[in-house]
């Protein structure tokens, strides 16, 4: 049995600052949740990148099938009216 079969894969999400969302930053192998959290700390926050870490078993992620890309995403291509680019935004609002 290879190591990859024995040791599950985890996805790592880091929240860099208060007020920001957790962002996916990579993956790692670990035997269980506690070890995954520690490995995430050691692998991905060595340069002070994080205030909070999430780890999620990669097997728990449900992903779209690349073959469905056309059906899922192409219909949005010709609906430019959904982009908020036809409004005049007052200067006082600042960056949106």
């Amino acid at each position: 049995m290879s190591e990859a079969e024995e040791i599950p894969l985890w996805e790592v999400f880091i929240r860099p600052r208060n007020g920001l969302a957790h962002r996916h930053c990579g993956s790692l192998h670990a035997a269980d949740a506690e070890m995954a959290l520690q490995a995430a700390r050691d692998v991905y926050t060595r340069r002070g990148e994080g205030l909070s870490v999430w780890v999620i078993p990669s097997a728990q992620i449900v992903a779209s099938d690349p073959q469905d890309r056309g059906a899922l995403f192409d219909p949005a291509d010709d609906k430019i009216y959904r982009h908020p680019s036809f409004y005049n935004i007052p200067d006082d609002v600042g960056h949106m």
Binding site: L28, A39, D42, V43
Partner: peptide, 11 residues
């Protein structure tokens, strides 16, 4: 024995 530990121990 694994990459994750290869970072943890030198840390």
């Amino acid at each position: 024995p694994m990459l994750e530990e290869d970072l943890a121990m030198p840390n």
